[in-house]
Design a binder for these strands. Sequence first.
RNA 1: GGGAUCGUAGUUCAGUUUGGUUAGAACGCCUGCCUGUCACGCAGGAGGUCGCGAGUUCGAGUCUCGUCGGUCCCGCCA
Length: 595
Amino acid sequence: MNFKTRTHTCGELRESNIGESVVLNGWVDNRRDLGGVIFIDLRDRYGITQVVFESSIDDKAYNLAKDLRSEFVISVEGTVRKRPDDTDNDKIPTGHIDVMIENLVILNKAETPPFQIKDNLDVGEDLKLKYRFLDLRRGDMQRNMLLRHKMAQLARNYFDQNSFIEVETPVLMKSTPEGARDFLVPSRLHRGKFYALPQSPQTYKQLLMVSGYDRYFQITKCFRDEDLRADRQLEFTQIDVEMSFVDVDDIFSMIEPLMQKFFKEIWGKELTLPIQRISYDDAMEKYGSDKPDLRYGLEMVTLNDVVKDSEFKVFKDNVKDNHIVTGLLAKGCGDYKRNQLDVLTDFVKKLGAGGLIWMRVKEEGLEAPIAKFLSEDEKANIIKSMNAEPGDLIFILSGVKYKTFDIMGSLRTEMAKRMELIKEDADPAILWVTDFPLLEWDDETERFYAMHHPFTSPRVEDLDKLASDPGKVKARAYDLVLNGHEIAGGSIRIHDAKVQAQMFKALGIGDEEAEAKFGFLMDAFKYGAPPHGGIAFGFDRLAMIFAGESSIREVIAFPKTTSGISLMDDSPSLVGDDQLKELHIKVREAKKQAE
RNA sequence: GGGAUCGUAGUUCAGUUUGGUUAGAACGCCUGCCUGUCACGCAGGAGGUCGCGAGUUCGAGUCUCGUCGGUCCCGCCA
């Protein structure tokens, strides 16, 4: 070896080390050549230490140091020294010392990197991703990776201490195309057959409960072949949890202290337990979302009662049809100009609204295009119900219940942005959303789908409705929501084969189909399945929020672009004819598809 | 599958509205000077397929069409 092993990292030396002979290894972060003296900021993932070259100390090292450039990898040996008066650097922890270098070894030179290795980098994401190995060298990214690591360790330790065991489940599994699109892996040994990559370890963890493992967790990759977003990747990591002999409250009281730890250890903030709960119906009615951001109020108000006798046709018809009339109060926005209101009208129209009713609240009453259709009583009641004052702006949307809530919810978040309601130092807002509907009707295929997944247990009191009125059945399902992001979701599962059969029936899945798709699970339930339930965190999203980032790519070491490409290794890529042949895939077709 | 937006030096951008001489700035890079800098300073310098391809035009970074790529959103994500 032509260099010495480091005695310290680049973030370690302090005044207490003065006089010590030390060896540092690292990357050249910056070079300041003042002629007779050369300063190098030496960097590793622990920090930066200034090392000094002077010809009076060592002429050979000094002359060699003249050739140092950014990102060269070097090993230096020297003596820790107190900095001369008035030359301390208070910005870094090592700023009160520097190291006078007696020996320099250049371990590797480096080309000028395509972007500077520095914090708060302003560079195109495609370049960052192409040179991810350099991007990851930056302090920002290293802090994110470290934060992610810490959270994973906190979770591991927490579950371990609570008697959970981590069990690895297969990555090659059976395709069960309910829900997201599967990634398929062609089988070489079995012509024409495919494995699927797991969308989640859902079925395996339930089987582990049947096996008596009682408390299971796993931090594991999941795969979904759907379009990407700022908070969605093709492959992502879940903290997957399952417990036996539990009900909803038991899951909550197991998970809440973990959240408290995250708050404390990562943010240094106290989280008071229990975490508040809101039912899905309330969340939709008040916030128009099943993952409401409660860092600000801006609650929606249902106005059906207020306008039930209205002469205004839109109100009258919607109330009559059991639809929804919902209002949103934008405090102090009464001065919004017509063009601003037009932009917002376009905004809701794009989401499927027929239009947007707006009313400016004046001293003398309501000023609105529809004012002439409303009685004085009605106008006064609207102002009163909305708790509006002169200078405010009222929005009203009406239409089919959940769709209208949903659109108003989008307008709510849009207005929160425009009104700058989320302050930089705002306290995080966390909540459980509970009592989700069990099923969701799909107009296109004209059948119900499981809102969560087909193993989710209905509420006991709703069991009889499963056959008669499936749309009304609520599930023992819940989401954990932080700052308007769904960070975890779970449910109590069905452990009774009879209930599961009813569920499949409601979903329009026949006995044969159920047997083919989930036979192994149904079979297992015949041999003593305990009541069980669990939850899974979207770990990337969780880390993103705790890191204060707005894209999960910032907390994933090697992410893909929005089009699912890895710019660094250029995957997905074409493969050789021989590989395709082995997998029984017709070469010509595969080639043609790729073009 | 759809919508929006961006693409000009190594990087971040200006220039595109209204087509017209040699496409600019900052940072970075290179050379020289400088013994206490830490966003070092000073002097000088190099660096461009204006994403790609067609078209309109006497003339295109600028206009039109197509295409590729990044980002954000809708659909989709049990």
